[in-house]
Amino acid sequence: MNFSQNNQNFQELDKILRQSINDTLQKFLDENLKNHIETSVKEFLNKYVDEQKKIQRLYYTKTNAIIDNTTASQELYHKLEQTLEELDSLKNSVENMLMEQRQKNGELQRKINCWEQSAIDFFRLLERAVDYETDERRLLINRILYGFNDLVNNLGIERIIPQ
């Protein structure tokens, strides 16, 4: 009986040892698996966080570039509006100057036409006076010259009297 009991004891001991080994092995595997999972998760999360930081930096950089470009664009648009206003003002000034110059040209042309007609009239009068030159006619010629002088002065021109 002793042998049977020893055998039974051995079997129980074997069971207990097996159970203990299985439990220890299971704990070891669980711990290693847990550590491995934790390490993998930490690595994955660190990579994910790094990628998110890179994306944030890139987003920040691009956003600043967009803001800078928008500001520059608005400044250029404002300068363009100012330039267009200045050009419009310059155009109006040039148009006014052209209108004034045309008016002056018209006035000068009228004066020239009037001068031409006055000169023709004057020379006709002189031709008549020369045909009838006497002392009395010299007075008449002097009157004509004074009349011519008045015509010339009305045009804003001075008569040159030869010596």
Rank of each mutant, 00 (worst) to 15 (best):
F122A: 00
I160K: 12
K79T: 10
R57Q: 10
Q101P: 01
K42P: 01
L17V: 01
E95Y: 05
N96L: 04
S4G: 10
I161W: 07
E107Q: 02
N113H: 04
Y59L: 12
L45G: 04
T70F: 11
D14K: 10
E136T: 11
M1T: 08
A119M: 09
E100K: 06
T71A: 15
S89I: 05
K54V: 04
N105P: 00
T71Y: 12
Q117W: 01
D50F: 07
S4V: 11
Q101T: 07
R128D: 15
N113M: 04
K91P: 00
Q163E: 15
N105M: 05
N46S: 08
N153F: 03
I67F: 11
F122R: 02
G156L: 01
L126S: 01
D30M: 08
Q117Y: 04
L76W: 12
P162T: 00
Q109N: 07
L17R: 04
L126D: 00
D23L: 02
N149S: 09
A72N: 15
F44P: 04
I161G: 01
Y146W: 12
L108V: 01
N96P: 00
M97H: 13
N69M: 11
A72P: 08
F123Q: 08
L76R: 14
A65H: 13
N105V: 03
E75F: 13
S73N: 15
Q52P: 03
N149G: 06
N32K: 08
Y146I: 15
L25C: 11
A129F: 02
A65M: 14
R159L: 07
L108M: 02
F10D: 08
N92A: 09
R57G: 05
R18Q: 02
L98A: 05
